[in-house]
């Protein structure tokens, strides 16, 4: 009977243990953030490299995808609605679809594919090569040195890239709308700014901030879970991607619900 009860509760116990481990990892990151600025001599380089890789080097890809997505929305809308280019509905759709939702989500998906995988794989390999242990042997916290700069770098990059994505997507949508129906840029911007609200901008900002944090934390956590073999690295990387995307979508739903409730 006791064994049956244990068997029934085993998944619950495992999930609880994992939840506690992840929560304490998040708290450790937040705790070490206070030391980050005192130790910037050793952590600054990691932060700069993370921003360079996650933010700067992704600019081209983000611009291309954003421009294409903005254009596709306009083309689809133009097929569905006659005189779409002149319709006020255009701006509402652009704000709801692009600024509120797709901007943050697609940017995060791209960052997860580029940087989330890189973080998990890099940290996993560092564990296998005793690099993490060597940091511990100096007394340097691996969370302070390896995780905090990556979290800050990814969060800053995702926030900046989301703004960049939205701008590129709106530019792309204007460009393609203009091909179908001549539309002066001044009119387009005027209508757009009349439609967009502070709540839309704030929602986009909060989402990108949370999404960046989730991707960086999940990827770092999975990378540091590698123990002995390099064969664990791809497994943990894949797990990092799947869990990042899952949690990003869960947080997206929660934040969207809050935005509509407020």
């Amino acid at each position: 009977m006791q064994q049956l009860v244990l068997k029934l509760f085993k998944p619950l116990i495992t999930v609880s243990q994992k939840a506690i481990a992840v929560t304490s990892f998040v708290f450790e990151i937040l705790y070490e953030m206070k030391s980050f600025f005192h130790q910037r001599k050793i952590t600054r380089l990691i932060l700069i490299r993370q921003i360079l890789f996650t933010g700067f080097e992704a600019l081209g890809l983000i611009a291309f995808i954003a421009f294409a997505v903005g254009g596709i929305i306009i083309i689809e809308g133009n097929v569905m609605l006659p005189d779409f280019g002149r319709s006020k509905l255009l701006y509402s759709i652009l704000v709801v679809v692009l600024v509120r939702e797709l901007g943050g989500l697609l940017t995060t998906f791209i960052i997860t594919a580029r940087s989330g995988t890189a973080i998990a794989a890099e940290l996993g390999n560092m564990v296998v090569n005793h690099e993490v242990e060597s940091l511990v042997s100096f007394g340097i916290s691996p969370v302070l040195y390896l995780v905090v700069p990556r979290v800050l770098g990814v969060v800053l990059s995702v926030v900046a890239l989301t703004i960049y994505f939205n701008a590129a997507a709106l530019a792309g949508s204007w460009f393609l709308a203009h091909l179908f129906t001549p539309l002066p840029i001044a009119d387009y911007l005027d209508n757009l700014f009349n439609t967009i609200s502070m709540r839309d901008i704030l929602s986009s900002f909060v989402k990108s901030f949370v999404f960046g944090f989730v991707v960086a934390v999940v990827s770092s956590y999975q990378g540091l879970q590698v123990q002995f073999a390099s064969t664990e690295v791809p497994q943990r990387t894949i797990k990092g991607v799947v869990l990042s995307l899952t949690w990003v979508l869960i947080f997206d739903i929660i934040i969207t619900m809050f935005v509509y409730l407020l």
């Binding site: 690099e131 042997s137 007394g139």
Partner: peptide
């Protein structure tokens, strides 16, 4: 507590240098 770690040096048999 860092002072304790400063007193201790450890040479790994393999790896240990940060590859990046």
């Amino acid at each position: 507590e860092r002072v304790v770690r400063k007193e201790i040096g450890f040479v790994f048999q393999l790896g240990g240098l940060l590859a990046n």
